[in-house]
Computed example of a mutant assay.
Amino acid sequence: MKIHAPFLSKFLGITKSLAIALLCMTIYTAAPTRAPAADVDLACPDLTRAEQLGTCPTEQELRDQYRTTCPEFMEKRGECKPFEVFARTKNKALWAAISGEEEFLSYMSCTQPSDRVKTAKAVSVEAKCDPQTGRCNALCRYEHDIAFTLRIKGICKTAGGQKLDCASDPQACVVTCELFED
């Protein structure tokens, strides 16, 4: 493709290199930034098939991590949370559950029994999206304060456009997502 920068430089009274740069910027900004792939209905995942992906940290691993973030001298001065509080916040493992072809994730307390997770029913769903970045989180909440989140490139919404309470009908916990291609 031949760029006719001399015409632009004479017409606009600018240098050839600036004319080429402006032309390239115009072409770049005119190109679509994201293309919708499809609208997909995603139900909150059935947790009977949820899996723990990571292992829970051992007591020694928690203590080592605590020492790394809070050396003894800081602990003695009262500048750190007590170890028990630290351990409660860090004693977590990654879980995954699938809905359609999408993966919902959760960092769950290792004190939460897996059978309690696998029997939990969905109680609500909501979508929080950032139109500027094209990123969206669909948050499914379950019984026993369990939550799984889908993070996608696209825009999601519930039937009413707001948080949807579906405790009486867990199968109604659905978000519709317009997924964007990468």
Rank of each mutant, 00 (worst) to 15 (best):
H4G: 15
A5W: 00
P6C: 06
P6G: 12
F7P: 07
F7Y: 10
S9N: 09
K10G: 05
K10P: 08
F11R: 14
F11D: 12
F11W: 10
G13W: 00
I14S: 03
T15E: 09
K16G: 14
K16T: 09
A19I: 03
A21Q: 14
A21P: 07
L22C: 12
L23P: 04
L23A: 11
C24E: 05
C24W: 06
M25A: 12
T26I: 11
T26M: 05
I27S: 11
T29D: 11
A30I: 10
A30R: 04
A31W: 04
P32A: 05
P32F: 02
P32W: 00
T33V: 08
A35I: 12
A38E: 07
D39M: 15
V40G: 06
L42E: 00
L42P: 02
L42V: 07
L42K: 02
C44G: 03
T48A: 12
T48C: 10
A50Y: 01
Q52N: 05
L53T: 15
L53K: 15
G54L: 09
G54R: 04
T55Y: 15
C56Y: 01
P57F: 00
P57C: 02
P57G: 07
T58R: 05
E59C: 14
Q60P: 11
E61F: 11
L62V: 09
D64L: 04
Q65S: 08
